[in-house]
Design a binder for these strands. Structure first.
Length: 390
DNA sequence: AAATCCCGCCACCGT
DNA sequence: ACGGTGGCGGGATTT
């Protein structure tokens, strides 16, 4: 019944800024890309990944970024799962920064290994009764949480209700997703496989579908953080994500200079306004008459590097992979003992990845992202800083 | 057609 | 109760 209230018409803030591109401009209407979680995350980061930022208020973020609160929760939850943020109080988060990522990653890595180890010894497998594989489960936070597992589908009794919820939280999903990469030699994983793996069992396309949707959400923000990147599985043509790990994205990055020479303004590629108030609509283009307050702070370089060192160090694979003795856990493609499940089907690409390669990829990614951003910016309001003609 | 994933309803949960 | 949180999945958009 109650039809959603009419929204203002699509606003076409198209104005060819300054680019010789073929720009028919009139590209109006709703554009899903401009409202992606990834872009929003990039903006979020641009807004808060800076010196002086200590606390972050959700309302403030939502308002500054011009989005509904709901979206902020999504971002904050995954950022928190990687240590970049921590909840301080209701509606309030503490900014920790990218420098907190390595530790978080390491913890996840160890947790994952231990968990797999545990599952390996106990017969509480919750998946296929045939081969064993890797991944997931277990919580993190240094908090006790006496979750001795034993819980799967049926809520044991009391508080398992809460745990059940936590079980499906975006944050936990994110951590488990990351464990998939960090606890195995897998470099590339498709969301389908990830979902399957993280699901343990119960496939009902329905459940899978939802899980994959979440994974997409997560992948988007992790991508904007450059922790992963979209690609394809080596063999098939199926889209998948590649783990990049943390590599002091800011600081040195050659891209910093290269990309700057063109636009003295914002640097980090995705800097865009996410607050365009054009909302999609099934038939008509209804647009919310939300106040759009583009706070667009041109992000000055992100050459912050708070704590002197500790950052740089990328992934710390090799060294502490086993942790419990034996690289058995999630490293399937490790000496395949009698056809360990179809590794080639689940994960792929396990090359050592050298520094250079990583940088190359990173750069390629930046260039790509930049191009995307650039082309997008040409059909979007350039934000004429001071003079507003007319 | 398949892959992506935005949007926001509304169940939950802490206070 | 109330308001902050945040699963969840319909279905619009992209690819």
């Amino acid at each position: 019944m109650s039809d959603p209230p009419p929204e203002n018409p699509k606003l076409t803030l198209t104005s060819s800024s300054s680019m010789p591109e073929s720009s028919s401009s009139l590209h109006h209407s709703y554009s899903r890309k401009q409202k992606s979680l990834g872009l929003l995350c990039t903006n979020f980061l641009a807004l808060y990944n800076r010196h002086g930022i200590e606390t972050i208020g959700l309302d403030d973020a939502a308002s500054k970024l011009g989005v509904e609160r709901r979206r902020i929760y999504d971002i904050v939850n995954v950022l928190e799962s990687v240590g970049v943020l921590t909840k301080r109080a209701k509606n309030q988060y503490t900014w920790k920064g990218f420098s907190a990522i390595p530790a978080a990653l390491k913890e996840l890595q160890e947790e994952g290994a231990k968990d797999t180890f545990h599952r390996f010894y106990t017969n509480e497998n919750v998946k296929v009764s045939d081969d064993e594989d890797d991944e997931e489960e277990s919580s993190s936070q240094p908090l006790s949480s006496s979750q001795t597992d034993t819980s799967k589908p049926p809520q044991s009794s009391d508080s398992s209700k809460i745990d059940n919820r936590r079980e499906k939280s975006l944050g936990l999903l994110t951590q488990n997703f990351i464990k998939l990469f960090v606890c195995s030699e897998a470099r590339i994983i498709s969301l389908d496989e990830a979902a399957k793996l993280l699901l343990g069992d119960a496939h009902n396309t329905s459940v899978m579908r939802t899980k994959v949707r979440r994974l997409y959400d997560i992948a988007n923000v992790l991508s904007s953080m450059n922790l992963i990147e979209k690609t394809h599985t080596l063999d098939s043509r199926k889209p998948a994500f590649k783990w990049l790990g943390y590599n002091g994205e800011p600081t040195f990055t050659l891209s910093s200079d290269l990309m700057m020479q063109t636009e003295p303004k914002k640097r980090v590629f995705g800097t865009d306004l996410t607050n365009v108030s054009v909302k999609r609509s099934r038939t008509h283009e209804n647009a919310t008459e939300r106040r759009m307050k583009m706070k667009q702070h041109m992000i000055a370089d992100s050459s912050y590097n708070q704590s002197s060192d500790d950052g740089l160090r990328g992934y710390e694979f090799g060294p502490f992979a086993p942790a419990t003795g034996g690289t058995f856990p999630a490293a399937p493609l490790e000496d395949n003992s009698r056809r360990a499940f179809d590794v080639e089907n689940l994960v792929s690409d396990y090359r050592p990845s050298y520094q250079n390669q990583v940088l190359k990829d990173l750069f390629a990614h930046y260039m790509d992202a930049w191009k995307s951003w650039y082309s997008e910016v040409t059909q979007k309001i350039p934000l004429p800083d001071t003079s507003k003609h007319h």
